[in-house]
Amino acid sequence: MSNVPEELAYSAEHEWVSGEPDAGAEVTVGITEHAAAALGDIVYVEAPRVGDTVIAGEVCGELESTKAVSELYSPVSGTVTAVNEALEGAPETLNSDAYGDGWIFKVEVSETATDLLDAEAYAATIA
Protein backbone atom coordinates (compact mmCIF):
# COMPACT_ATOMS: atom_id res chain seq x y z
CA MET A 1 0.00 0.00 0.00
CA SER A 2 1.51 3.27 -1.00
CA ASN A 3 2.08 6.19 1.33
CA VAL A 4 -0.45 9.07 1.37
CA PRO A 5 0.88 11.80 3.70
CA GLU A 6 -1.78 13.43 5.95
CA GLU A 7 -0.55 16.99 5.50
CA LEU A 8 -0.97 17.15 1.69
CA ALA A 9 -3.99 17.76 -0.55
CA TYR A 10 -4.64 15.65 -3.64
CA SER A 11 -6.26 15.79 -7.06
CA ALA A 12 -8.29 12.99 -8.60
CA GLU A 13 -5.52 12.77 -11.25
CA HIS A 14 -2.99 11.70 -8.59
CA GLU A 15 -1.14 14.98 -8.04
CA TRP A 16 -0.33 16.20 -4.56
CA VAL A 17 -0.32 19.82 -3.39
CA SER A 18 1.77 21.09 -0.50
CA GLY A 19 0.68 24.36 1.10
CA GLU A 20 -2.73 26.05 1.36
CA PRO A 21 -4.09 26.41 -2.20
CA ASP A 22 -5.48 29.88 -1.58
CA ALA A 23 -5.41 32.71 -4.13
CA GLY A 24 -2.05 34.47 -3.93
CA ALA A 25 -0.27 31.63 -2.09
CA GLU A 26 2.54 29.53 -3.54
CA VAL A 27 2.08 25.73 -3.50
CA THR A 28 4.33 22.84 -4.50
CA VAL A 29 3.03 20.11 -6.83
CA GLY A 30 4.12 16.54 -7.45
CA ILE A 31 2.63 13.15 -8.25
CA THR A 32 1.68 10.58 -5.63
CA GLU A 33 3.66 7.48 -4.79
CA HIS A 34 0.73 5.49 -6.12
CA ALA A 35 0.92 7.23 -9.50
CA ALA A 36 4.69 6.83 -9.72
CA ALA A 37 4.45 3.13 -8.88
CA ALA A 38 1.72 2.59 -11.46
CA LEU A 39 3.88 4.14 -14.19
CA GLY A 40 6.98 2.15 -13.30
CA ASP A 41 10.48 3.57 -13.69
CA ILE A 42 10.01 7.17 -14.83
CA VAL A 43 12.64 8.16 -17.39
CA TYR A 44 11.41 11.56 -18.56
CA VAL A 45 9.46 14.40 -17.02
CA GLU A 46 8.13 17.21 -19.18
CA ALA A 47 7.11 19.89 -16.69
CA PRO A 48 5.55 23.28 -17.48
CA ARG A 49 8.00 26.22 -17.68
CA VAL A 50 8.41 29.07 -15.24
CA GLY A 51 5.89 31.74 -16.17
CA ASP A 52 3.43 29.32 -17.77
CA THR A 53 -0.20 29.65 -16.81
CA VAL A 54 -1.68 26.39 -15.58
CA ILE A 55 -5.35 25.57 -15.09
CA ALA A 56 -6.75 23.17 -12.51
CA GLY A 57 -7.64 19.84 -14.11
CA GLU A 58 -5.86 20.59 -17.38
CA VAL A 59 -2.79 18.94 -18.87
CA CYS A 60 0.46 20.81 -18.22
CA GLY A 61 3.12 18.21 -18.99
CA GLU A 62 3.83 14.53 -19.32
CA LEU A 63 5.57 11.69 -17.54
CA GLU A 64 7.22 8.88 -19.42
CA SER A 65 8.28 5.48 -18.07
CA THR A 66 9.66 2.48 -19.92
CA LYS A 67 6.20 0.96 -19.75
CA ALA A 68 3.85 3.85 -20.39
CA VAL A 69 3.30 7.55 -20.77
CA SER A 70 0.96 9.64 -18.67
CA GLU A 71 -0.19 13.22 -18.84
CA LEU A 72 0.62 15.55 -15.98
CA TYR A 73 -2.36 17.62 -14.81
CA SER A 74 -2.18 20.75 -12.77
CA PRO A 75 -4.18 20.42 -9.55
CA VAL A 76 -4.51 24.21 -9.19
CA SER A 77 -4.83 27.30 -11.40
CA GLY A 78 -2.12 29.91 -11.41
CA THR A 79 1.33 30.85 -12.67
CA VAL A 80 4.35 28.52 -12.50
CA THR A 81 7.04 30.06 -10.28
CA ALA A 82 9.61 27.25 -10.16
CA VAL A 83 10.37 23.92 -11.80
CA ASN A 84 12.44 21.13 -10.28
CA GLU A 85 15.42 21.20 -12.66
CA ALA A 86 17.02 18.20 -10.93
CA LEU A 87 14.41 15.93 -12.48
CA GLU A 88 15.96 16.52 -15.91
CA GLY A 89 18.97 14.43 -14.97
CA ALA A 90 17.33 12.26 -12.33
CA PRO A 91 13.69 11.55 -13.27
CA GLU A 92 13.84 8.38 -11.15
CA THR A 93 13.54 10.67 -8.10
CA LEU A 94 9.79 10.58 -8.74
CA ASN A 95 9.86 6.87 -7.92
CA SER A 96 12.25 7.06 -4.98
CA ASP A 97 10.99 10.23 -3.24
CA ALA A 98 7.66 11.26 -4.74
CA TYR A 99 6.72 13.61 -1.86
CA GLY A 100 10.16 15.13 -1.27
CA ASP A 101 12.94 15.62 -3.82
CA GLY A 102 10.51 14.43 -6.50
CA TRP A 103 8.44 17.63 -6.44
CA ILE A 104 7.75 18.83 -9.98
CA PHE A 105 6.74 22.49 -9.99
CA LYS A 106 5.53 25.41 -7.86
CA VAL A 107 2.53 27.60 -8.62
CA GLU A 108 1.36 30.98 -7.42
CA VAL A 109 -2.33 30.21 -7.07
CA SER A 110 -4.69 32.58 -8.92
CA GLU A 111 -7.93 31.06 -7.76
CA THR A 112 -8.48 29.25 -4.47
CA ALA A 113 -8.80 25.54 -5.15
CA THR A 114 -11.92 24.03 -3.63
CA ASP A 115 -12.12 20.56 -5.14
CA LEU A 116 -8.92 18.96 -3.83
CA LEU A 117 -9.15 15.80 -1.74
CA ASP A 118 -7.76 15.29 1.73
CA ALA A 119 -5.48 12.32 2.40
CA GLU A 120 -8.30 10.09 3.58
CA ALA A 121 -10.49 10.81 0.56
CA TYR A 122 -7.59 10.33 -1.88
CA ALA A 123 -6.53 7.09 -0.21
CA ALA A 124 -10.08 5.81 -0.68
CA THR A 125 -9.84 6.41 -4.45
CA ILE A 126 -6.78 4.19 -4.78
CA ALA A 127 -7.76 1.48 -2.29
Binding site: G40, D41, V43, S65, T66, K67, N95
Partner: peptide, 11 residues
Protein backbone atom coordinates in the same frame (compact mmCIF):
# COMPACT_ATOMS: atom_id res chain seq x y z
CA UNK B 1 3.26 -9.76 -12.58
CA UNK B 2 4.07 -6.61 -14.55
CA UNK B 3 7.04 -5.89 -12.28
CA UNK B 4 8.64 -6.88 -8.98
CA UNK B 5 11.44 -4.48 -8.07
CA UNK B 6 11.47 -2.12 -11.04
CA UNK B 7 11.34 -2.32 -14.84
CA UNK B 8 14.85 -1.04 -15.52
CA UNK B 9 16.53 -3.11 -12.78
CA UNK B 10 14.80 -6.23 -14.10
CA UNK B 11 15.67 -5.43 -17.70
Amino acid sequence: PVRYSGDIAEH
